[in-house]
Design a protein around this nucleic acid. Structure first.
Lengths: 357, 357
DNA sequence: CGCCTCTTGTAGATCGGTCTACAACATGTG
DNA sequence: CACATGTTGTAGACCGATCTACAAGAGGCG
């Protein structure tokens, strides 16, 4: 283990300077790779640092210069999509001097606000925000203080950069796939209303709007069926159960992301049905979706890429870029066995009807 | 939103003091709730803080006093068990002045070391370490600097507290359950060797040792079969495939945690078998294990409780406790449909053999 | 040789808080 | 009334770095 002795009590820059027989400023220059250092001095200072196991105190550093810390704020880590973002972000930083720290957004408190504030209070050099619910205005004010990259929301601002997936495109792929299989009674399972206000820029809102538009355009406007549910597997399961045992059982359910989709699969099993009876599509392509026992058709968002891209943009901002950048990732439909053609129920007329579109 | 304007440029304690017409020290006293503040002064200072939207700079604070920040280091967030810890820890802090920050352990770098160092460098008031692989000595040195709680490893030290699950007890429950169902050819799927060295205190090592002991004690010592695999679903799947298609197919597989167990279920499906042919047991009870399409028998570790307990111990340490505390959580076997009695294969003799134990 | 420039190193202010020591004043007590 | 005690507020050192301004010395050039 070539790991330095755990910060050894507290060796300060003063100690290093004494050991090397130079001034504090000299040591500072060496560790910052600043101008005005002779090879001889660098040598001696480096040796002293090594010998004493010196590590700069980031708090002290933060008072004047950079902390080499990037903060990322994440809601509900229980959703397996978010760790994908983190994996990408961490990997993108692995050879840089920057360290990523994560602040979990406690849902009990005002969602992302507290966590983002906490990061800024700690003098991070930049923040990545994943919270879908913080107000754009507030975020803009934040961006005046510190570089900000917003992940996964579609509103644009010149104050901060964004990385989003093309949610409309992804949803279009889902709907086309279901239409091509012959589905027309397609329900959409999404979150409670406040999160999906049209125009809010939240991915779920765009998926919902696109679902509606696609149904309209395909001539199935009268079959639009939107079911809302609170977060959590149990809640989604309950909502799905109502949907499946209700009077107008759809032949396919498109869930706003994979977790509710798994809840639908759960309900399908409980209702004694199979995905042959009711097709299911999710969104995100979380790892477990590929498991043969679930085999969920879904949309891959490449969270790793999004995380890495967010870090990249943030580092550019820190390096001085002022013009905003807004990156869009192309999602990809992954077809698995949870989507099959609808079973003919009331005769073959329906399939025929689709044929003459 | 009663959220203060995003740190508003940078209002310092100086500004607040001027606004309230008092000294910096007075403001400091108010925000720290220190002794020697009259109600009148408190009033004026509080008003000034409110008016200016002042937020203390944590870096500056860290230079002398506390940062009210707890750090937790987590390996591989992709494993859904770890978010459970975080949920518990976050919830335990939701009404305290402390903020949790997470440092992901980049597997590319020397696992937990870098992340733990990063936290200490940032002057956290205490750290929770989840890394199973950092050396106890190193951790002890760390604990000399800052309060430490080690989560999930069984070695004890007087320098730091620990929170662990009773892995031996959990494994005993698993083995008893399998024996009672009639299984004797039970294989154990675990991680690569370095992680499971006996006596290392790593949970996987204890589960392995207990598996071996239980098999011996039941008289099946000659049927002990340990399969090793790297981390990751794909790797586990491959290892499981070898096991299932090999000459001595076991009737049950006990995996060291849920992710490899899901890999085994995957392999079982691929091999055209069912859990009627090969029973599967996992460990951790991650959320998806309860899904009817998987229905994995596993051991619940109550990660939320462990996380909350770790925070509790850490706060005690910070408050001054010096004697170590070592908490043990009792795990609980959750029986689902992935474990059924073995199918009689070579006649009924085997079941008979079990009977005369 | 005198002057100019470039390199190398240092002194000391500064960042925004905390905390100790102490001054000023009020109150209680013999 | 003199003195001890308690309360309330302030001044200023201090934490550990960064960073500006500048001094000292080396080398180049007419």
């Amino acid at each position: 283990m070539a790991v330095s002795r755990a910060s050894a009590g507290s060796v300060t820059i003063e100690d290093v300077a004494r050991e090397a027989g130079v001034s504090r400023a000299a040591v500072s220059k060496v560790i910052r790779n600043a101008y005005g250092v002779s090879p001889a001095m660098r040598e001696r200072v480096t040796a002293a640092i090594e010998k004493l196991g010196y590590r700069p105190n980031i708090s002290a550093r933060g008072l004047r210069g950079a902390t080499f810390t990037l903060g990322i704020e994440i809601p509900e880590l229980s959703n397996p999509f978010f760790p994908r973002l983190l994996t990408g972000a961490t990997a993108a930083l692995s050879d840089s001097p920057y360290q990523l720290i994560i602040a979990p957004a406690d849902p009990a408190h005002s969602e992302g606000y507290r966590a983002l504030q906490a990061l800024v209070d700690r003098q991070v050099d930049g923040v990545i925000a994943v919270s879908p619910l913080v107000e754009p205005d507030w975020l803009e004010a934040l961006a005046a203080d510190v570089p900000v990259v917003m992940l996964g929301r579609h509103d644009r601002s010149s104050a901060y950069d964004t990385v989003v997936s093309d949610d409309e495109g992804g949803t279009r792929q889902v709907m086309r796939h279901l239409f091509e299989l012959g589905h027309r009674d397609i329900a959409h399972l999404t979150c409670e209303t406040e999160r999906t206000a049209s125009g809010s820029g939240v991915p779920q809102a765009i998926r919902l709007d696109t679902y509606r538009a696609a149904m309209q355009e395909a001539g199935f406007g009268d079959r639009i069926s939107v079911v809302r549910s609170l977060n959590g597997e149990a809640e989604c399961h309950r909502a799905a159960m109502r949907l499946l045992t209700g009077p107008d059982r759809p032949t396919a359910v498109f869930a706003c992301h994979d977790e509710p989709a798994l809840g639908v699969l759960h309900a399908i099993a409980d209702a004694g049905l199979t995905t042959g009876d009711v097709a299911v599509v999710g969104y995100d392509d979380i790892e477990i979706a590929a498991h043969p026992n679930l085999s969920l058709t879904t949309v891959d968002q490449d969270g790793e890429r999004m995380g890495a891209l967010a870090v990249e943009l943030l580092l550019e901002r820190i390096a001085g870029r002022a013009e905003p950048r807004h990156e869009v990732i192309r999602p990809e439909l992954i077809v698995r066995s949870s989507t099959r053609p609808p079973r003919p129920r009331g005769g073959a007329t329906r399939l025929g009807a689709l044929g003459d579109r």
